[in-house]
């Protein structure tokens, strides 16, 4: 895959976010709390995933007024979500000047066959992936960053962990196995040179974060130790009893993910975490949206 200058600066922005926490916010006030706590970016939303699950209905791109308000209230990068395949929503967000677009399964998908042709845009995209094939299809379409598709709004980390382990194991299996690399490329409908590249470097071409279900500093440490390069926290912060402290604690935990002493300190006395949901009780599994 040819890397254009635009792709290089967009991959680069994702690299600058590494080791950091990206937080869902629904207002300028929440965005300022996130920034003060040390978030590396704010995800502008109308409703956090926990509320989307509860209220049901069609979840769409946020009202541009909210996105703009949030962009004006902080100096960190601002991201916003569009529905899978909804390139018109993406055109609107690019026009607003957001720094990153999340083509997200948390919103109701708009297209059952095609994701957004992301190479048509100058703004970078982050997309979810449950496995290596899905990750490569998104990179080929032009995603500059990936994240797991853990079940957002549940406070349950198991799905994100599953996706991280799946991708790690698939990358390891490809190492030095030319025959498998070929079969994999055909089966997953991705270019062989991309598969070879990953097999050789033992690493995805773009930055990969964990998203979905992160509610505690320990959750952040767990996914970082499994090898992701940063975390998204959605409902986990503003659905908890003390958002300021929890946000700061998750930031510190993400940096010091392998230091149990610091993790013990920042995990203490945070109050109630967000209320959780078991995966088997979910009406809709977001990870099944997109392919």
């Amino acid at each position: 895959m040819k890397i254009t200058k635009r792709m290089k600066v967009n991959y680069g922005l994702a690299q600058m976010l590494k080791g950091g926490v990206i937080m869902d916010v629904t207002s300028a006030a929440q965005a300022r709390i996130a920034e003060k706590a040390g978030a590396v970016a704010a995800m502008a939303l109308e409703r956090v995933p926990a509320d989307i699950r509860k209220q049901g209905g069609i979840a769409r791109m946020a009202d541009p007024t909210i996105v703009k308000e949030i962009m004006e209230s902080v100096s960190i990068p601002v991201m916003a979500k569009v529905r899978i395949g909804h390139f018109a929503e993406a055109q609107i967000l690019q026009e607003l000047g957001v720094d990153f677009i999340d083509e997200s399964e948390v919103l109701t998908p708009a297209d059952n066959r095609y994701h957004i042709p992301k190479l048509d845009f100058n703004v970078p995209f982050v997309c979810g992936a449950t496995c290596l094939g899905e990750a490569l299809r998104r990179i080929k379409e032009g995603a500059s960053m990936l994240r797991t598709k853990g079940e957002a709004g549940t406070g349950n980390i198991i799905e994100a962990v599953k996706h991280i382990r799946m991708i790690n194991e698939e990358i390891a299996l490809l190492k030095g196995n030319r025959k498998l690399q070929k079969t994999f490329a055909v089966r997953e409908r991705v270019p062989l040179d991309m598969v070879k590249d990953i097999a050789k470097n033992q690493k995805l071409q773009v930055v990969n974060f964990a998203a979905g279900g992160i509610a505690t500093p320990a959750d952040a440490s767990l996914v970082m130790q499994l090898g992701v390069e940063g975390v998204f926290v959605g409902s986990g912060i503003f659905k908890s009893s003390d958002p300021e402290r929890r946000a700061a604690a998750i930031v510190e935990a993400t940096t010091n993910f392998n230091n149990p002493k610091i993790l013990a300190r920042v995990s203490s006395g945070l109050g109630e975490a967000m209320p959780g949901l078991d995966i088997k009780d979910l009406d809709i599994k977001y990870a099944e949206r997109g392919w």
């Binding site: 040390g38 978030a39 990068p77 010091n256 230091n259």
Partner: peptide, 25 residues
């Protein structure tokens, strides 16, 4: 990552990232 990590260094690189986040940390 910690104050003790500075011991014995001849140089220190402060990388790109989000300056507000790095400052807080």
């Amino acid at each position: 990552r910690l104050p003790s990590d500075i011991e014995g260094l001849s140089g220190l690189i402060i990388p790109g990232g989000e300056s507000t986040a790095i400052r807080t940390l």
